[in-house]
């Protein structure tokens, strides 16, 4: 396997007039090409901060992030799926998926073909011409996944994308995410505080602890897919991660 992203001695400090927040300290992480990495931890442990740094929303205080051996620039291709519904209401599902392709000046015909391919991938091709407000929450997030992948980004960053959905829909979308990942072989970084979700999805789980935000341990998940969340090994692993998060 090839190292896709290398994070070294990463530090993030937020300075506000009232106080200084030590969000991340000494983060070292190598992510291989095509890996599915889950970031877990309690609130304020810096997992979202790390994701936002990779997305380019937050500046790095110290340390380096390299991708394919080169220092990360702001404008590399990354797909981001947000926790909030971030689809553009004035665009249909297909037009939303086409947005990233428009930015890259892909010709119209090809845009249409690619966007329908990706809507098919998330099983929404019949809803291509629906506006987001006519879609359910789960469908909207599926369109968001298609939108984030349609322009063939280097990595996919997902920030608790299914956190606002009901349990049943969330399970469906987790299975769908694994399916999409296996078909596209994208490197995925996935932030969640749902530990069962992390064990179900990830090749590795990066466990963060707060004050200052740092990596406690990286847990390898070797369970075969599709994973059974009621299997004893699954639950054992989930308990292990739970212990790591709470007792330190």
């Amino acid at each position: 396997m090839v190292t896709k992203i290398s994070i070294q001695n990463l530090r993030k400090i937020y300075d506000t007039p009232e106080r200084r927040v030590h969000a991340l300290e000494g983060v070292n992480l190598n992510i291989e090409d095509g890996e599915f990495i889950c970031l877990v931890g309690l609130s304020g442990c810096g997992k979202t901060t790390l994701l936002n740094m990779l997305a380019g929303f937050v500046e790095i205080t110290a340390g380096t992030i390299t991708m394919d051996g080169k220092t990360l620039t702001q404008d590399y291709d990354k797909g981001v799926v947000f926790q909030e519904y971030a689809l553009f209401p004035w665009r249909t599902a297909r037009q939303n998926v086409e947005y990233g392709l428009e930015i890259r000046n892909v010709p119209e015909e090809e845009r249409k073909r690619i966007s329908l391919d990706f809507l098919r991938l998330v099983r929404l091709e019949e809803f291509a011409d629906f506006f987001p407000h006519n879609l359910s929450g789960g469908m909207r997030q599926r369109v968001a996944v298609a939108r984030a992948m349609a322009f063939d980004p280097q990595i996919l960053l997902m920030d608790e994308p299914f956190g606002a959905l009901d349990a049943q829909t969330r399970e469906e979308l987790q299975a769908l995410t694994v399916d999409v990942w296996q078909k596209t072989k994208k490197t995925i970084l996935y932030v969640t505080h749902n530990l069962s979700e992390a064990v179900y999805l990830g090749n590795r789980i990066v466990v963060f602890v707060p004050n200052p935000g740092r990596i406690r341990e990286i847990v390898k998940v070797d369970l075969p897919r599709p994973r059974d969340d009621l299997a004893p090994e699954f639950i054992k692993l989930q308990r292990h991660v739970n212990d790591l998060i709470r007792d330190f």
Binding site: F82, F88, Y99
Partner: peptide, 27 residues
């Protein structure tokens, strides 16, 4: 702001974000 961040994450420049996100978003 999440619409703007979504467009930024897809590397839309400022002018494009204004035209394709801010204008329809403030309609």
């Amino acid at each position: 702001p999440v619409w703007i961040r979504a467009a930024q994450s897809m590397n839309a420049d400022k002018m494009t974000i204004f035209r394709t996100v801010v204008l329809p978003g403030s309609l």
